[in-house]
């Protein structure tokens, strides 16, 4: 027996490609632009969102029948904010170094529209297990794009990956730099992320024509 039924497996698989939160649903673009100048920051953000979205989806799903619809957005916001504050405090107490690296990201998760988007679109109408899978799937789909964008921006913008120089030293002119290669300063500013995301969307849609909308 498979670990997950086909329907459940699709909850994880779909957001990775054909229903990706960033490239198809166009959610979470803001953080994809802001924090992908470095690969490490992208990975950390992806992991944090994975935790918050997984837990949050379950919490909202459990509460879905008793949340008054008039204030459901506020309730969702409180759930995210509570989770984020707990994560932040626990990190500060037990992994201080890591919490320094995360600095602003933890707080930024609250404003990530993927989270509210999934609460609203999925967790409010589905059971906890399916909501959990949906949260994990969407967070992974989000994380993949973040890592791809972070990879190219750090490599082309700073010539490093995870902070390690991979293309040689630009000041001493070693490695690629010896042949006249220069880092592209444009890649470290946010508009470059938009271009990289655009290219990903282009590649994805030309591979899968079904994603192209008629108008």
């Amino acid at each position: 027996m498979a670990l997950l039924s086909k329907k459940d497996a699709n909850l994880i698989k779909d957001p990775l490609a054909d229903n990706n939160p960033i490239t198809i649903q166009v959610l979470g673009i803001c953080s994809a632009l802001a924090i992908t100048a470095e690969l490490k920051a992208s990975v950390v953000m992806a992991v944090s969102v994975l935790f918050v979205l997984g837990m949050g989806n379950v919490a909202i799903s459990l509460l879905r029948n008793i949340i008054p619809s008039k204030i459901r957005i506020i309730v969702q916001l409180i759930v995210v904010a509570t989770l984020v504050i707990i994560v932040d405090q626990v990190l500060k107490a037990f992994a201080y170094e890591l919490s320094k690296t995360l600095s602003v990201f933890v707080g930024l998760i609250i404003t990530n529209c993927i989270i509210m988007g999934r609460f609203e679109a999925f967790a409010l109408g589905n059971g906890p297990w399916r909501s959990f899978l949906d949260g994990i799937g969407n967070a992974l789909g989000y994380g993949i794009i973040l890592v791809i964008v972070g990879f190219f921006r750090e490599l082309l913008g700073s010539g490093t990956l995870f902070g390690f120089p991979v293309l040689g030293n630009p000041i001493d002119k070693t490695g690629l730099y010896a042949f006249g290669y220069e880092n592209n300063g444009f890649m470290i500013i946010p508009p470059a992320a938009l271009i990289v995301v655009g290219i990903i969307i282009w590649v994805q849609r030309s591979r899968n024509k079904a994603l192209i909308e008629d108008n």
């Binding site: 008793i66 949340i67 008054p68 204030i71 506020i74 309730v75 409180i78 509570t82 504050i85 707990i86 405090q89 626990v90 500060k92 107490a93 037990f94 201080y96």
Partner: peptide, 24 residues
């Protein structure tokens, strides 16, 4: 609902904060 939620969330956060503050 709103009142109960605020009390519950407030209690959880106050507990987390006070139990971790000395370590922080």
């Amino acid at each position: 609902f709103a009142a109960v939620m605020v009390v519950i969330v407030g209690t959880i956060l106050a507990f987390v904060s006070s139990s971790l503050s000395s370590k922080i």
